[in-house]
């Protein structure tokens, strides 16, 4: 991100405006494709739209100075989980059977419920007036800092996560194993 800012400064473009425009564009795109994910009639297309949403969220992480998280997001979500979704869609039949979205009545009830949830969250977010807009200088966390705290202060949860990953691996093998006939 800092390289981009230097480039903008050298050309006399107001960097604040460009960064804001880029953020709102990416946020709108992410929300639009998230709607496509839940509304698409074809589950395969929904998986591809999900990849776009996850990439957009990785870009949002860049605006939050979390470069490592953005890389992890692209690697794990877009690289692994979306591929897994696509494989599962292909292994299970009737991709195009058009019956994947619920009835109109259920859709409207769900729309009202989720809009109510969003409205409540929006109100609560706007109720707090003390949100900070300025970031203290040098507040972003470097990668080495992150790695050090993962290996020192948060070593136990790190090990627990590796145990959970192992358990998920073994569980997936056991559940997905073909039965003997």
């Amino acid at each position: 991100m800092s390289g981009l800012i230097q480039l903008l400064n050298s050309h006399g473009i107001p960097q604040d405006f460009v960064i804001k425009a880029a953020f709102y564009f990416i946020a709108a795109l992410t929300l639009l494709f998230a709607l496509f994910v839940v509304l698409s009639r074809h589950i395969f297309r929904a998986a591809v739209y999900l990849a776009v949403v996850l990439t957009g969220i990785a870009a949002v992480y860049l605006f939050l100075d979390a470069e490592f998280l953005a890389v992890v997001q692209v690697l794990i979500y877009v690289g692994a989980i979306v591929v897994l979704f696509i494989f599962t869609v292909m292994l299970t039949a009737d991709i195009d059977s058009g019956t994947f979205v619920g009835t109109l009545r259920r859709m409207s009830v769900a729309a009202v419920a989720s809009l109510a949830i969003f409205f409540i969250l929006f109100k609560v977010i706007n109720m707090v007036t003390a949100w900070k807009t300025a970031v203290p200088a040098g507040a972003s966390i470097s990668l080495s800092q992150l790695g050090k705290s993962l290996m020192t202060g948060y070593a136990l949860p790190f090990e627990v996560i590796s145990l959970i990953s192992l358990a998920a691996l073994v569980g997936a093998l056991v559940i997905g194993k073909a039965e003997k006939r």
Binding site: L31, A34, V38, L64, V101, G102, M107, F118, F122, T133
Partner: peptide, 27 residues
């Protein structure tokens, strides 16, 4: 810079869309 609440609103909108999907999807 971008205010904090806009990131939170983005998260809230994404959460609501996800909840809508959980409610409506049959697959």
């Amino acid at each position: 810079m971008i205010p904090e609440s806009h990131f939170l609103i983005l998260g809230a909108a994404l959460f609501s869309i996800g909840v809508f999907g959980v409610f409506t999807r049959r697959n």
